[in-house]
Amino acid sequence: MSIHIDPLEKKWIIMTSGIVLLTWVLIIYYAAVENVHPPSNVEVIDSAHLHLTSGVGGGEFMEDKLGIHRDVDGALVVTMVAARYGFYPQHIEVPINTPVKFRIASFDVLHGVLIPFSNMNTMIVPGYVSELTTSFTRLGDFPVICDEYCGLAHAYMYGMIKIVPKDNFKLTAEVH
C-alpha cells in the first residue's frame, strides 16, 4: 500500500536527510583526518588506593609523581588527581599551541574538568583513568574547574593553569 506523500514533503525529507548525512560526513572526516576523538581510553584504576603501588594501575598517581613531565617520546604529560575539593597539582604551566596529554584519576567521587576557551573537558569517573590530549591556543591564566557536582563545596573545587609562550616554557622538575 502506498502512502500519501506530498511533493513538498518529499523535498523536505531529502533536504533533512542531506543535512544529517553532511554532519555524519563531517564528523567522520574530522575523526579520520584531523584525529578529533572524544576522551575514551577505557582504562581501569584502583581509585581508593592511588597512594599505593599495589593494586590496579598503582604507582602512577602517587603524590610524588603528580605534575608535568615528558614521556619517553618527549611529549608533555600532566598527571593529575581530582579529589574533594581540588586538583593536584593545583597549579600547572604549559606552553601554547603544543599538544599536552592529561592523565587524571579521581580519588573519591565523580568529578569533571573544564578549562574555559579550550577543548579540555572530561569526566573523571572513580575506577577509570581519564586521558585527553589537547593544545591550548590562548595565552594567560585560566581556572581548571570541576564541572560535575561532587559535594556541598563543589563550587570551590578548582586549580589554575598558565599558558605561556613556547620560548618561556621550562620543565621545572623532571618526573619519571
Binding site: 575523526a31 576523538h37 572524544p38 575514551s40 577505557v42 573537558n121 569526566m123 569517573v125 577509570y128 581519564s130
Partner: peptide
Amino acid sequence: MDPMVAAGWKL
C-alpha cells in the same frame, strides 16, 4: 566526555 566508553560506541 566519559572515560569508560570506547570512541567507536560514541560515534
